[in-house]
Computed example of a mutant assay.
Amino acid sequence: MELQNNIAVTELRQRLRDQILTFEPSDFEKLALQIFRYQADHNPIYKQFIGHLQIDPGTVEKLTDIPFLPIQFFKTHRIKTGAVSKVKTTFESSGTTGQQTSRHDLYDPELYETISEQIFREKYGDLNHFHILALLPSYLERNNSSLVYMLQHFIKASGSPFSGFYLNNTAEMLKNLRSLIAKPDGKQVLLMGVTFALLDLAENEADLQFLKQKNDLIVMDTGGMKGRRREMLREEVHDILTSAFGVPQIHSEYGMTELLSQGYSSGSGLFTAGRTMRILLRDINDPLSVYDHNISLSKTGGINVIDLANLDSCSFIETQDLGRFGEAEGSFYVMGRFDNSDIRGCNLMVL
């Protein structure tokens, strides 16, 4: 009987996985509710959490009815759905000494790689149209970062001999960047870096004078001071970086250890959720009061994320970030964090 149940659960998972890769945007809610019912039945921690809230999964008929699992559970429990068995890798969040870190098991690397590439392509275009220069020293000092994993895939998919990670060899990176700017080959250059490393580079503004010429460089801030610098307002950071790199806007990525989907910002802190991601907001004083994009755009709330790519963990996460909606459907701002929550390395910096 147990074997038959496992086979049935495995077949259900495969059907949902296929839909995640092919669904139309108009079918997002329908698929999210299917995944909710699957996880409510086959994720022991999430099932227990729903039970404590005395919510009958059968009564959940819209996205705002779904209970969202507090993100702190990834620090204290192994969050797993279904009959998947072999963990391929475990992502771990960064943290200062003494902090308890989050852990997120990855069972299906191909799904993560495909979804993250789809999201990037829809925002920026094919990866093979880019040279990707990754400046992520603190992430490379550990081997379990989801951001490094994603960028390893991006760098390989770009097919560029200039693409790669630059840990302490910023001189080589600048040499390659100068060459790519001086002799464009039709590909765009994406410089993607952790905040403190980009600021370190910007301090040597004399070395960046060649960028003052017209260029289509994309500078993307992944967030994070890692205790190396004082926390700064996003606007302050981006003013420094736009001046130093000679670009009109600083792009940003919204992602975290507990999520397999990403959001991207082309500037001004306005993010667009990826195709497998939906942002909802919750009332600051009542976490079970959740609302969608129809709410007043000026209202700030806690960010809840639906991440369909989290098929094997939990797709419904209550984060500790504060946000509000942008004017366009699917757009949002990250306003900061709740008081007394840990500073996270993979988010936009604290405001």
Rank of each mutant, 00 (worst) to 15 (best):
P57G: 11
T114H: 12
L351F: 09
G95W: 01
L127I: 00
G336T: 09
P184F: 10
I115T: 15
K187R: 15
H42N: 15
S298V: 11
N176I: 00
D221T: 05
A182S: 15
G164I: 01
I66H: 11
K80S: 04
D239H: 13
N176K: 14
F196H: 14
N310M: 01
M349C: 09
T272S: 11
Q100D: 04
L136E: 00
N6K: 15
G345R: 09
D41I: 04
Q4T: 09
R13F: 04
I35N: 12
F162D: 11
G302A: 12
E329A: 03
G274N: 10
E2N: 14
L167T: 09
P161L: 02
K212G: 07
T22D: 06
D27L: 07
L111N: 14
I295L: 12
A202E: 03
A40S: 14
E141D: 11
H251L: 00
D339R: 12
I132R: 08
E203S: 10
S158M: 06
K30M: 11
I295N: 10
L233R: 11
Y149M: 06
S145M: 02
Q249W: 05
L233W: 09
S331L: 00
F210L: 03
L259P: 03
F154N: 08
M256Y: 07
L106W: 06
P287S: 14
N347D: 13
P287K: 05
G345S: 03
R324H: 15
F91K: 08
L12H: 08
Y264N: 02
G159Q: 02
L133N: 10
P287D: 01
D207P: 01
Q213H: 04
L136G: 01
F120Q: 06
L174Q: 08
D185M: 01
E172Q: 10
E258W: 05
G95D: 04
M256K: 07
V87A: 06
C346R: 09
K30E: 15
R103W: 03
T257K: 03
R15M: 08
F36R: 03
R324Q: 15
D339F: 01
V189H: 06
D200A: 08
G223D: 05
E236D: 14
L241I: 07
F245Q: 06
S341I: 08
L270K: 15
D108W: 03
F154E: 09
L208E: 03
R103V: 02
I240S: 07
L201K: 07
T319S: 13
D56I: 02
H153E: 07
I7H: 13
S93K: 10
A197D: 05
L260M: 07
I218Q: 12
L270W: 13
E236A: 13
S102Q: 13
Y166R: 09
Q188R: 14
T195F: 09
S138Y: 07
D286G: 04
D286A: 11
Q249S: 09
S252V: 04
N304F: 01
P44M: 06
H77L: 05
F162Q: 14
G269E: 07
P248G: 07
I66S: 11
L151E: 04
E2L: 14
M220W: 04
A171Y: 04
L190V: 10
L127K: 09
G186A: 09
T276A: 12
M225P: 04
Q320V: 07
K175E: 14
E11G: 01
I250F: 00
D312T: 12
K30A: 15
L12W: 03
E110K: 04
A8H: 14
